[in-house]
Write a protein that binds this DNA or RNA. Structure first.
Length: 200
DNA sequence: CGCCCGATGTGCT
DNA sequence: GCACATCGGGCGT
């Protein structure tokens, strides 16, 4: 069931993010994504991620080099890369690896944890089952948009961070090809860099 | 459940 | 000019 009270937690520090993007994507499964603003909190346990690994990865936005849009990905690890797509959707990523190497983990799905009344309000007319089961759904539920692009995820004052969450048995974490990159050439298209929990 | 399709606007060629 | 790391509604199975 959902938690309504919990012990104080702290944002994962920058060293967590300063590693290979695929390791970070795997280790983010089970962590808690927290959005805090003006005295209320919305959070969820991360249950699906994807790794995008630098300019050589032809599915990664950084493949065309550093642009205004992708600048944050070229910066230091532990910062939010939030991009706009399909004319109406925001997607949230965490920058990984050392500064200058453009890699990030897309957070694709979470399990609602706290602030359910706010999620319900932000996702009106949608079945609970589909509140946060997609990358642009969870940003809507957690009120993440352009104003969070570039914020420091290791500083709770950003109002957006990731902290320790639930222990997930490693045997339950499975992986496969990334979603929505059908036009990306091989071998990138088939790289098994999407991670998710088998049974939710 | 699955497939199909329109919405909608920004960034890069 | 067009692709796009998507979503939700509609309708068929």
């Amino acid at each position: 069931m959902y938690n309504t009270k919990r012990m104080p937690e702290y944002p994962l520090n920058q060293s967590f993010y300063n590693r290979q993007v695929i390791e970070v994507a795997y280790d983010l499964i089970g962590k808690r994504l927290v959005r805090q603003m003006n005295g209320f909190q919305i959070s969820g346990l991360i249950c699906e991620t994807e790794a995008y690994d630098g300019m050589s990865d032809l599915a990664c936005h950084a493949r065309v080099g550093k642009t205004n849009r992708t600048a944050v990905m070229f910066g230091p690890p532990g910062f939010a890369y939030v991009y706009f797509t399909y004319g109406m959707h925001w997607c949230f990523n965490v920058v990984t690896g050392e500064e200058g190497y453009a890699a990030a983990v897309l957070i694709r799905a979470i399990i609602p944890d706290t602030g359910l009344e706010f999620i319900a309000n932000n996702r009106q007319g949608i079945d609970k089952q589909h509140w946060v089961d997609g990358p642009a759904k969870l940003t809507k539920a957690l009120m993440i948009d352009k104003s969070q692009n570039g914020v420091n995820l290791s500083n709770s004052k950003s109002g957006l961070w990731i902290e320790e969450g639930a222990h997930i048995d490693k045997s339950r974490i499975i992986h496969g090809p990334r979603i929505g990159i059908d036009r990306t050439p091989e071998p990138w298209r088939s790289k098994p860099w999407r991670f998710w929990v088998e049974t939710i």
